[in-house]
Design a protein around this nucleic acid. Structure first.
Length: 312
DNA sequence: AAACAGGTGCTAA
DNA sequence: TTAGCACCTGTT
């Protein structure tokens, strides 16, 4: 019913040479709302899935180098509707991009049940965050984003990334602009980055862009390293400490065995697993790694989303 | 108005 | 090794 409706709209829009529409089937349910709003990505804005009232929730953003709108008619479903610019990208590429971005191959039912079985708190956190998927971001964009996240608010991080894309990125469909590559940012000057409201992080971002574009840091080599090596490598960049490095490994390289510790996660570990005793970030990290092993990344994101929703 | 936000680098013990 | 502090900018 809803599908038919969308198909009709699709045909009409195509005839008008406007963005196309397709649906992507995932192997297990996903919640776009949870996955895109839990704070792991900064590019997606709520919007209408134009002309399709059945699609209750939709987001516009950029991934895989193209502007997309993703939407769902139900909050938790294995079906995702996608609107794209047919002049910029093929339907098959859109499908592949979305499947990859949403980590279609992660066995979510298994991850959810194993974490839920690990204790009462995790059971509640998983229930609350059902449909969460660790997004596969572009490694450079993840690095830049988390360099910008230092001592910053999520809304402000999103805004800065928007400014940088608007100013230095390239049109990539649906009126969106891509996130500028390392060469582009390395070629910009400090003034430009300050004008994009990077603040004191401008210097750090520039350092990251220079090291990456100059080959001093090889982002393509990270997957061949052990997590510890990769961590040390990333931390050679100014402004990249343990937390940022772990976020880059989790969100840019899908290293699910890392456990990034920020103030919220440290708070969660203290409250739920250490009887309320204050813990250092390093102690919280050790506890997370020990407790969750290969699922640490997912556990961290459920905990973060769960605790924040309670206290925000 | 003052404090805080997905931390990190620097300095001093 | 670790504690204390400053830091752009926007919000409350």
């Amino acid at each position: 019913m809803g599908a038919q409706r969308v198909a009709e709209v699709d045909v009409r829009k195509q005839a008008l040479d406007e963005p196309g529409v397709l649906q992507v089937q995932l192997p297990s349910p996903v919640s776009l709302q949870v996955s895109l709003e839990c704070g792991q990505v900064f590019r997606w804005k709520r919007c209408d899935f134009q002309g399709c009232p059945d699609i209750g929730i939709a987001y516009k953003g950029v991934t895989g180098g193209t502007g997309l709108i993703m939407g769902q008619s139900q909050p938790l479903s294995d079906l995702v509707w996608v609107r794209y610019d047919p002049g910029a990208v093929s339907p098959q590429d859109v499908r592949d991009t979305v499947l990859r971005y949403l980590s279609a191959e992660d066995d979510i039912p298994s991850i959810e049940s194993r974490l839920a079985a690990s204790g009462e708190v995790m059971r509640e956190a998983v229930t609350f965050g059902r449909g969460l998927r660790i997004i596969k971001q572009d490694p450079w964009e993840a690095l830049a984003s988390y360099v910008l996240s230092i001592n910053n608010s999520i809304t402000n991080i999103s805004r800065i990334i928007g400014y940088l894309s608007e100013r230095l990125g390239e049109p990539c469909g649906l009126g969106e602009k891509s996130f500028p590559g390392p060469e582009r940012i390395a070629g910009a000057d400090l003034t430009c980055l300050r004008e994009c409201k990077c603040g004191f992080r401008a210097q750090n971002l520039l350092d990251a862009a220079r090291k990456v574009s100059g080959g001093e840091i090889d982002l393509d080599a990270i997957p061949t390293m052990t997590v510890d090596e990769a961590r040390r490598e990333l931390m050679r960049i100014r402004g990249v400490g343990p937390k940022v490095a772990d976020c880059v490994l989790l969100f840019g390289y899908h290293k699910l065995e890392v456990f990034p510790v920020d103030v919220w996660v440290a708070r969660a570990v203290s409250r739920y697993f250490m009887g309320g005793r204050p813990v250092s970030p390093e102690e919280a990290r050790a506890e997370g790694l020990k407790r969750f092993g290969q699922l640490a990344g997912y556990a961290q994101e459920y905990l973060f989303y769960y605790l924040r929703s309670q206290e925000l």
